[in-house]
Design a protein around this nucleic acid. Sequence first.
DNA 1: ATTATATTTGTCAAATATTGACAAGTCTAA
DNA 2: TTAGACTTGTCAATATTTGACAAATATAAT
Lengths: 112, 112
Amino acid sequence: MKTSFGEYIRKLRTENGMTLTQLAAQLELDSANLSKIENGKREFDEKRLEKLATVFSLKLDDIKTEFFSDLFAKKIYENNCSMETLMVAEEKVNYLKSKNVKQGEIKFNTNE
Amino acid sequence: MKTSFGEYIRKLRTENGMTLTQLAAQLELDSANLSKIENGKREFDEKRLEKLATVFSLKLDDIKTEFFSDLFAKKIYENNCSMETLMVAEEKVNYLKSKNVKQGEIKFNTNE
DNA sequence: ATTATATTTGTCAAATATTGACAAGTCTAA
DNA sequence: TTAGACTTGTCAATATTTGACAAATATAAT
């Protein structure tokens, strides 16, 4: 199981027989910095997730799952958060979704 | 159910009959900025979580749960992440914990 | 061993983002 | 109408992140 997003990118890259320089060019960044990203010494920039999906013909959703789960896991681990945090987060997402309904949908009044 | 960390602080503050100025002083920040925090226009600074726990005699762990779950929920909502993200995050936390064992504990070799 | 290519590491200025602080505004209740 | 509580806007100071480059190391082929 791959943990870090860096390792995930490295796996994708090597499996596709690309060098740092090649992938870096496609992602429009410096190969030295991509190296740091793969080695967990820099963060991958959120704004490049789409490019990454394109380069490897992956679903953006899957890349996002990989990216954000990694972000959350690191935060939880670093800050010694309880696992409950994730459960509460789930509730809150559901709350946000119910509150702020997508455009075009009918929003019924709820209590409060 | 309170969603935002700002609302959470406001609830604590009003329940304890404090003014913005009073709480801000205890947290060592400007009351104007605390107002923005409560109204979701600024982020509460992680480094003040402990002070917050002290002021209201709450367990730091509970405050952290509130704080980070809010952070995660917002990210997921804003970026339209799949709910799976949270499950994957949980797996990754467990992986990080098993990999990087706390000091003093014995670490047996695992596969890889 | 020597060259070429790939990767890693260090550094630093520039670009961005966050914060602290203050002034001026609204709102409410006495 | 004054006082206290809260809100909003702004901006310089500070902190963080990023892009870029040079130099070091590693790896592989000849």
